Simulated scan of single mutants.
Amino acid sequence: MTTFSKSPFSSVNVSLEYNVTENIVHYNESQNENTFPDNRNIISLINLLICLPGLVGNGIVIWLLGFRIKRTPFTTYILNLAIADFAVLSNEIIRDIFSLLSWINSNFFPVYFSFLSYDIFMFTFTASQYLMTIISIDRCVCLFFPLWHRCHRPPHLSTAVCVIVWILSFLISAIDLTLLFAGYAIIANVQFVLNAVVCLPIMCVSTTAIFIKFSLRPAQKKKGKLLRTIWLTLFFFLLLAFPLTLVEVLSLFRHTTEYSYEYGYICVFLNSAINPMIYYLVGRDKRARSSKRINKVLEKLFKEEEDCRENQEI
């Protein structure tokens, strides 16, 4: 009999005992009456207010890039990122609805749902993290090696990379869930250490390089909005998505609290929801008297993909 305790992502503080031989899970709720249900329900409502607009925005991006706009190697990455963010937000919406309903009826929250919800989150969040890392690398290559990016880049590289990202993310989340069921929650956190060691430095260097390269451009060549959009997306990803990684790494040393986990997850959901807003705010014409519909703005923005021929003159 092994004991597993991982409460930050569940709707209540739970301790689960998993008997491998009999394949039985005993679900014991251990909740603080002073903090639950009030604080838990407030957090669930905040998450819903964040996730619902983001779900609509990412849905529009998926619809445009999937069915309306001719796909390019770069927009393939954006499409897959929108799919990952859409999955993160929809999973959280379902979890929060279950959480609110479980306040009315404590038996409503299924025993396995917390595990399944956490595994889906890890799968989609890991995919979005890897995709953002790849996007940052792709934009740096386009800026600093435009000739290779335009002429020698394999035509199906984006599709192949996205497939590899989804497969790798699924394997990581499956291993994570297996370790959690086996009672090795600390080992499962090692993947956040790898994210901090590998993804974070790459994205920091890439984001800084893109900012410097864009700042050195002549004024007439700073009109391209897509590069500015990608830089802001990377910046907010570093600002909002990596606090959770930091919390998970610090948890290895017992330097975290339940509220730090909640803050980390809220930041992740906010990051997944904010990307379509960035696309719209940067892509719209500020001089126009009337605001265009979001689908028109996004369609114009993604059709304006950075032309690497322009970069050859820099």
Results as ranks from 00 to 15, higher is better:
Phe145Arg: 13
Pro73Ala: 09
Lys300Gly: 01
Phe170His: 07
Ile134Trp: 14
Leu252Gln: 02
Val297Arg: 00
Val165Ser: 08
Asn91Cys: 07
Ala241Phe: 09
Asp285Ala: 00
Leu157Arg: 10
Leu147Ala: 14
Gly57Thr: 04
Asn41His: 03
His152Met: 14
Pro201Phe: 10
Ile93Arg: 01
Met132Arg: 12
Arg309Gln: 10
Cys151Gln: 15
Tyr280Glu: 02
Arg68Lys: 14
Asp138Val: 12
Glu248Leu: 10
Val249Cys: 05
Ser291Met: 08
Phe253Trp: 08
Ile134Arg: 09
Ala82Arg: 03
Glu306Tyr: 05
Ser291Cys: 06
Asp138Gln: 13
Cys140Met: 14
Val20Arg: 12
Thr72Tyr: 14
Pro8Thr: 01
Ala219Tyr: 12
Thr233Ile: 05
Phe86Lys: 01
His156Gly: 10
Leu246Glu: 03
Leu81His: 09
Ser90His: 06
Phe181Ala: 02
Asn32Tyr: 05
Ile62Cys: 11
Thr133Tyr: 10
Ser5Cys: 03
Glu22Asn: 10
Phe253Val: 02
Gly59His: 07
Met132Thr: 09
Pro201Tyr: 09
Ser30Glu: 06
Glu304Gly: 02
Ile24Ala: 06
Tyr77Gly: 07
Leu16Lys: 09
Arg289Gln: 05
Val88Phe: 10
Phe214Ala: 04
Trp63Glu: 05
Val56Lys: 11
Cys51Gly: 05
Arg287Asp: 09
Lys300Arg: 03
Thr229Val: 08
Asn275Gln: 12
Glu310Cys: 06
Pro201Met: 07
Leu171Trp: 13
Asp285Phe: 02
Val111Ala: 13
Asn80Trp: 15
Ile50Asn: 01
Tyr279Thr: 00
Cys140Trp: 14
Gly59Phe: 09
Val282Tyr: 02
Phe253Met: 04
Ala188Ile: 02
Ile93Glu: 01
Leu45Asn: 00
Glu22Thr: 09
Met132Cys: 14
Asp285His: 01
Val161Tyr: 14
Pro8Ala: 00
Trp231Arg: 03
Phe145Trp: 15
Gly264Gln: 07
Ile78Ala: 07
Leu179Asp: 08
Leu252Gly: 04
Ser44Pro: 00
Cys142Lys: 14
Tyr27Ile: 01
Asp138Pro: 13
Leu180Glu: 10
Leu147Pro: 12
Thr75Val: 05
Leu168Ala: 15
Phe144Glu: 11
Arg309Val: 05
Asp119Pro: 11
Asn107Ala: 13
Leu194Pro: 02
Gly183Ser: 02
Leu49Ala: 04
Arg139Gln: 15
Lys223Tyr: 11
His156Met: 14
Thr133Lys: 08
Tyr27Val: 00
Thr2Phe: 09
Phe74His: 10
Ser106Val: 11
Thr75Tyr: 12
Ile69Lys: 06
Thr159Tyr: 15
Ile135Ser: 09
Glu313Ala: 06
Thr2Ala: 03
Val61Ser: 06
